[in-house]
């Protein structure tokens, strides 16, 4: 199965081509440039490096959220655009699960999270799994305080990943959680989700489970609602001064 993977759900962007569990080519950027400008060239380069054309692709895998509002839309729009002419099937992958995927052999509690600002994260917890990480919780928008409570209750060493890993580690350090819990933060770019992870997860789900691909039309972004109940967006008290 040839899979074209696309990810632009957060800070970084990448495109990858995999074939039967082998990564043929991957392009990755972490250069602060706009995904709307970088993602299509990355995809063309990944296909060319793999020696493939869109006609060779069996399914397009895309991280369809949660994450950056514009980033997710750019990735999903590109996937739809590429899939539509040849009526290629698409498969939406959780960006959080894609971040967790490379760490599936960890013996720690895996917290994959994306920064949702104001001490909140889009987050899920996993433990090790043979082919894919074993999911403990659904993707959810939670506060870092809630994440800390979950970690305390699990009482095991933690590995952080995802573009929110550094923010989470800083919060856990400041709030004292790192004093009594071993919380590891991988160095460098390994914390970021990759298009290849989206492609491998897609191949796994389509060949090993009863999940099925969808057409370009029904592929949609997945957004998670942040909890903002604690305060209004418009600070009426301040603005009536």
């Amino acid at each position: 199965m040839n899979v074209l993977g696309i990810d632009s759900s957060a800070l970084t962007a990448s495109a990858a081509v995999t074939a039967n569990g082998v990564l043929l080519a991957e392009q990755f950027v972490n250069n602060g440039l706009t995904h709307s400008e970088t993602l299509a060239p990355l995809t063309i380069q990944a296909l060319a490096s793999a020696g493939k054309t869109p006609d060779d692709i069996d399914v397009i895998a895309v991280t369809n959220g949660p994450g950056s509002f514009t980033g997710v839309r750019i990735g999903v729009a590109l996937a739809k655009g590429l899939a539509t002419p040849g009526n290629l099937p698409c498969f939406g992958v959780s960006s959080i699960e894609a971040a967790a995927y490379p760490f599936r052999q960890t013996d720690r509690l895996l917290m994959a999270c994306m920064d949702a600002r104001r001490a909140q994260v889009y987050c899920a917890f996993f433990t090790a799994g043979e082919r894919i990480p074993t999911r403990l919780t659904d993707d959810a928008a939670i506060s870092l305080a809630e994440a800390a409570a979950f970690i305390r209750a699990k009482n095991m060493p933690v590995l952080l990943c995802g573009d929110g890993a550094r923010v989470a580690h800083a919060y856990f350090t400041e709030s004292g959680l790192t004093r009594d819990t071993d919380i590891a933060l991988p160095e460098g770019d390994s914390i970021y989700q990759r298009a290849s992870s989206a492609a491998f997860l897609t191949e796994y789900y389509l060949t090993q489970t009863d999940r099925t691909a969808q057409d370009a039309f029904s592929l949609c972004p997945t957004y998670l609602r942040l909890s903002q109940a604690e305060r209004e967006l418009n600070n009426k008290k301040l603005n009536n001064k």
Binding site: S68, F69, T70, G71, A116, R117, Y223, R225, L226, Q228, L233, N234
Partner: peptide, 14 residues
């Protein structure tokens, strides 16, 4: 822009 969802969907945080 009236709600947090409105704000998020402007791409403000990006």
């Amino acid at each position: 822009v009236e709600t947090w969802d409105d704000l998020y969907s402007t791409g403000f945080y990006d």
